[in-house]
Design a protein around this nucleic acid. Structure first.
Lengths: 145, 145
DNA sequence: TCGCGCCGTCAACTGAGATGTACAACACTA
DNA sequence: TAGTGTTGTACATCTCAGTTGACGGCGCGA
């Protein structure tokens, strides 16, 4: 199964193929696999054979190494993250966003300092927070992510 | 050559090691290499041996494949770009401390629910947290990363 | 102090990642 | 149409990413 469908978005092959279509050397044709290999060889960085470029593009091989990913990304002028799963990256970013949402320094402080406490203590503090919310007339259950 | 100096900033090993130091399961210590391997195994995704995790962390092996990079990034809750882009890595590091705290579901719950409370209440809760830390014999000041 | 279990470390092996080489298909020129 | 060069395709081969298994140190309970 060349095209791994467990990948949330497009496959690596699809992305690479898209790059070939999109970034072109001169009007008319796309980069040749050999050209890519040669260019990479010249930059002094990690080399990559033309055949392998083709295999990746065709989906015969997915799962290249870090260095090859860097080389390919560098050649086409995209960040290496381009080749990774977009959905996963977005999910992580959402988690990071949750963080930046907590602008309130006091809340951050509480989170940091609460980290490491015993489950029992955490539970007690949770209850206390809920109780205070109640007293201040804040909504009851707003389950976030 | 284990430590690839073509890498813009820190080596992969350094970054991974940093993740181990930063994101911890709960108070006590860092994740064990075996724990990481087991967790990855449980998620159904690509597996990775504990020994190999160690090798990557030590710099005996750099240049893992795409899938393993994804798995590692997923486990530590950072985007795969963390291992590539140094600028992104630094940005993430800045927030990682808080992120790791929020990885604990209980702590996350507290943070989310504490958001919106009055300054007075937040202050009270902060003091309570500090008091509990004291009782549980946890360190006083936040230690540097 | 002994024994047991956990974890980091190391070396050797396996297999997938990656390459080299050769062939087929097409384009261009004379 | 024959000849030459270029590029995609195929496959045999080799290298190194990744695993397996074992050893040694360390903490903990008996």
């Amino acid at each position: 199964m060349p095209n791994d469908s467990t990948e949330a978005g497009r496959t690596l092959a699809a992305k690479l193929d898209h790059l070939f279509h999109t970034v072109r050397p001169r009007h008319g044709g796309e980069y040749t696999h050999e050209e890519v290999a040669a260019a990479l060889r010249d930059t002094g960085g990690p080399t990559i054979s033309a055949t392998y470029v083709w295999q990746l593009r065709k989906g015969l091989r997915d799962n290249p190494t870090k260095r090859h990913l860097e080389a390919l990304a560098g050649f086409f002028g995209v960040p290496p993250a381009y080749f990774f799963d977009e959905a996963a990256a977005e999910r992580i970013d959402a988690e990071l966003k949750l963080l930046s949402a907590l602008r309130d320094a006091s809340v951050r402080q509480i989170a940091l300092r609460a980290s490491g406490l015993s489950p029992k203590s955490l539970n007690a503090i949770t209850e206390m927070v809920e109780r205070v919310r109640e007293l201040e007339g804040l909504p009851d259950a707003t389950k976030g992510a």
